[in-house]
Design a protein around this nucleic acid. Structure first.
Length: 558
RNA sequence: UGGGAGGUCGUCUAAUGGUAAGACUGCAGACUCUGGAUCUGCGUAUCGGGGUUCGAAUCCCUGCCUCCCAGCCA
């Protein structure tokens, strides 16, 4: 989880340090990661996971995985399963501490009765519409519910009957009796329980009343002995309520601390919007490689270590900002560069014929598997008279600064020979270039000392090439912040129509054994990972991220 | 126009009264059998105005801007 470098300082760590120094919580550090199982985890959760699990690990404490499953209408076992898988994959160590708010429904119910007995909660018969109308506005106080002063006995009776299923959905709620004039809307007699005759993914039909987030969260933290309850900024306004419930109950009181959630350019990170992309079939499920979900990034080829490095680089503050997508890509490349075996593949094949290379001759040339990791060793790559090269690596009329293949120019074929272009074969009708003809210099075999050439290009031996499908992904959105939309539009207006391009390419034989999930660097192109659908007779690779390409950058400027 | 929280390079983060630092991005160069990687260099910032102080990003006053809150969602 912590990987190599020492974690940067941040304000939450400072608080923990101070708490340890003062002996608060007996020097313990116990955090929790509390997702609601109503969607898949995304890269924003990765940040939260790193903070919560990372802090626990750093201070020799623990971090629980706890599902905030208080709303059965939106939650599902599928999400629970995916969340457990994703947290594990990222390296979150929760041991056997997988908990559920629903584990505590009985205790919560008992505590609600206790608040009723203390005159701190009451059953309210107002409809949701009436509650809204009487809540007031930010500038005007609300009005007390006409049911606010029911007797304890009546409240107890009604609450029990709510639990027993005697009333339909929405008929009544249990509300905390706080202050309808509070400037903090969360304190205007917030709802603690609502009636929901719904099947819960864990408790089934046992309950027809379900606790609201505010009533559940702090008490769950308390039960689990959490010390630092870390959440995102939008809960800042809820902290007084978090504290109020704990204080009224007089139970162990953890400390809520809020930090800024992650925002990424060209990305949406709201479960509602991600769900919409999935449900409308705009993407191929929650794990579509274009999704910012953990499962999507995994399928795309992002590594846990790369994602962790990114999350660690983020820092923790209370500033609302937006992190550049390039930063994510930097950390992914950095990890993949160290760990990915290199291989040669051609995405848009163009035939190259070496006219002075003997017909039928074949050589197996030595290629380095990973220049960043000598222990990865070498492999043999077949070479013959006809090879495939990238269409981009040939240009009949080269622009300024282009130093790949063009008539009269020479380049090195990676791990092979220097070749000189002597002509092309074109389709007589369309004029399209069908073949490039070159001569090779047999004295320039790789490994031998020879003259320098400006460019080295990759290639695949035609006689031994295996077909591959490559899925080339680009950003899902065309604008930095798809959440900023003009009136009357929604974020879908900014979908990138070219976020996926599928090409049929050629690869060296080493790729034949690729298993789903295997990661490679296709030399000079980028990092690719075998898709979950990839089979030996139909290899499919997802482009994880391109290599930095200074030539492409130069061209874009023109 | 209520309450809460924030404003430091283009972006993110640090500096906790004492030389405004780092990362990403960008630009320039070196090196290179990946126009990759690596290395070097360059650039740009304390929201405005007052004040306290020998000294202010930091403390005080004031103004401005941004974000969050009126779910029986979390």
């Amino acid at each position: 989880m912590m990987d190599a470098d020492s974690p940067p300082s941040n304000f939450i760590r400072d608080i923990i340090l101070a708490d340890i120094a003062s002996g608060k919580y007996g020097g313990r550090v116990h955090t929790r990661f509390p997702p609601e199982p109503n969607g898949y985890l995304h890269v924003g959760h990765a940040k939260s996971i790193m903070i919560n699990f990372g802090l626990a690990e750093e201070f020799g404490g623990k971090c629980n995985l706890r599902f905030d499953d208080t709303n059965p209408t939106k939650e599902d076992q599928e999400y629970v399963d995916s969340i457990i898988e994703d947290v594990r994959w990222l390296g979150g160590d929760f041991g056997d501490r997988v908990y559920y708010a629903s584990d505590y429904f009985d205790q919560l119910y008992e505590w609600a009765i206790e608040l009723i007995k203390k005159g701190k909660a009451y059953v309210c018969d107002l409809s949701s519409e009436e509650v809204r109308r009487t809540r007031g506005t930010p500038t005007e106080p609300g009005q007390n519910s006409p049911y606010r002063d029911r007797s304890v006995e009546e409240n107890l009776n009604l609450f029990e009957r709510m639990k027993n299923g005697e009333f339909p959905d929405g008929a009544r709620t249990l509300r905390a009796k706080i202050d309808m004039a509070s400037p903090n809307l969360n304190l205007r007699d917030p709802v603690m329980y609502r009636i929901l005759h719904a099947e819960h993914h864990r408790t089934g039909r046992k309950w027809c009343i379900y606790p609201m987030y505010d009533w559940a969260h702090g008490q769950c933290d308390s039960i689990e002995g959490i010390t630092h309850s870390i959440c995102t900024l939008e809960f800042e306004d809820h902290r007084p309520l978090y504290d109020w419930f704990l204080d009224q109950l007089g139970i162990y009181h953890p400390q809520q601390i809020e930090f800024d959630r992650l925002n990424l350019t060209y990305t949406v990170l709201s479960k509602r919007k991600l769900l919409q992309l999935v449900e409308q079939g705009i993407v191929d499920g929650w794990d579509d490689p274009r999704m910012p979900t953990i499962s999507g990034m995994r399928r795309r080829g992002y590594s846990p270590a790369g994602l962790r490095a990114f999350a660690r680089s983020l820092g923790v503050s209370k500033t609302n900002g937006i992190t550049e997508f390039e930063k994510l890509e930097y950390y992914i490349r950095q990890d993949l560069n160290r760990t990915s075996p290199r291989v040669m593949a051609v995405l848009r094949p163009l035939k190259l014929v070496i006219t002075n290379y003997p017909e039928g001759q074949l050589e197996w040339l030595e290629a380095v598997n990973n220049p960043e990791d000598p222990s990865a060793g070498t492999r043999k790559v077949p070479f013959g008279r006809e090879i495939w090269i990238e269409r981009d690596d040939f240009c009949e009329v080269p622009p300024k600064g282009y130093y790949r293949l063009y008539p009269g120019n020479e380049v090195r074929l990676r791990y092979a020979y220097i070749v000189t272009c002597e002509g092309v074969v074109k389709d007589p009708v369309t004029g399209e270039i069908q073949e490039v003809h070159c001569r090779y210099d047999p004295s320039t075999q790789s490994g031998q000392p020879s003259r320098k050439v400006k460019s080295t290009i990759h290639w695949v031996c035609a006689a031994h090439a295996i077909p591959i499908e490559a899925r080339l992904y680009d950003k899902l959105f065309t604008v930095e912040d798809p959440n900023q939309v003009p009136e009357g539009q929604d974020f879908l207006a900014y979908l990138n129509p070219n976020s996926l391009e599928i090409v049929q390419g050629k690869a060296e034989p080493a790729l034949a054994s690729a298993q789903p999930g295997d990661r490679y660097q296709f030399e000079r192109l980028g990092y690719f990972a075998a898709d979950k659908s990839s089979r030996p007779d139909h290899l499919v690779f997802n482009r994880t991220v391109e290599l930095r390409d200074t030539w492409a950058k130069l061209q874009k400027r023109l």
